[in-house]
């Protein structure tokens, strides 16, 4: 087809195809739903703990999946994909923190207490103690502790998510863990 033979509809169609190839979402909806069901909750909790704001965590979660969907990535395993999502989320939380500059504590919002929990007062107290202890740490240390002990990530995975060297993770975790454990023990005694 010569250029002079093109109709406006053809131009629109070709332009649409060009845009689609460059900017389209790189996954089908069914695959996405399956990934989302497995990863959304831990990601949201991580973002909420990072930002201390449920609405902001909602926004960052949406942005995380948007970026994830736009990237034509090949993932070696389920864990690799999950790490990638956490890495996007961490970068977004860092960007947000840099933009707003305010110091975000581990979380200041009212804790949700599970109704079946035997001792609501004790549970609430433990959460408050943890929040205070975690607030003593740098953001990077908090992230490392969360990824290691809640998400069960290995040192290599934590290094990949936080963009650090594997060798530095051991010491980072050790210092953060020792500090939090000491503060928690002091509260208990």
């Amino acid at each position: 087809m010569f250029l002079r033979d093109l109709t406006f509809t053809d131009v629109d169609r070709l332009q649409g195809q060009a845009i689609g190839a460059e900017d389209a979402i790189q996954m089908d909806q069914e695959t996405f739903s399956s990934i989302y069901e497995r990863t959304a909750k831990p990601l949201w909790v991580f973002l909420w703990r990072r930002t201390g704001d449920a609405h902001l965590a909602d926004d960052l979660l949406q942005e995380t999946y948007y970026r994830f969907l736009r990237i034509r990535g090949s993932y070696e395993s389920e864990a690799h994909r999950r790490n990638y999502l956490f890495r996007i989320a961490t970068n977004l939380a860092n960007d947000n923190h840099r933009r707003h500059k305010e110091s975000v504590p581990f979380s200041e919002s009212e804790p949700h207490i599970r109704p079946e929990h035997n001792d609501i007062a004790a549970c609430s107290q433990r959460r408050t103690d943890l929040q205070r202890a975690m607030s003593q740490l740098a953001t990077r240390q908090r992230d490392a502790l969360w990824l290691a002990y809640v998400e069960g990530s290995s040192h290599e995975e934590i290094a990949e998510i936080l963009g650090l060297k594997v060798g530095s993770i051991k010491l980072l975790l050790f210092r953060a863990r020792r500090k939090v454990a000491k503060l928690l023990r002091e509260k208990e005694s």
Binding site: A40, K41, P42, W44, V45, W48, R49, L61, P111, H112, I113, R114, H117, C123, R126, R127, D129, L130, L145, W146, Y149, V150, R177, V180, A181, L184, R185
Partner: peptide, 19 residues
């Protein structure tokens, strides 16, 4: 000490999350 505290906190938070 730390893993138990963090895991309890994550479980309690996850319980009420509406995504």
């Amino acid at each position: 000490q730390v893993a138990k505290a963090l895991q309890d906190d994550a479980d309690t938070t996850s319980y009420d999350v509406r995504l």
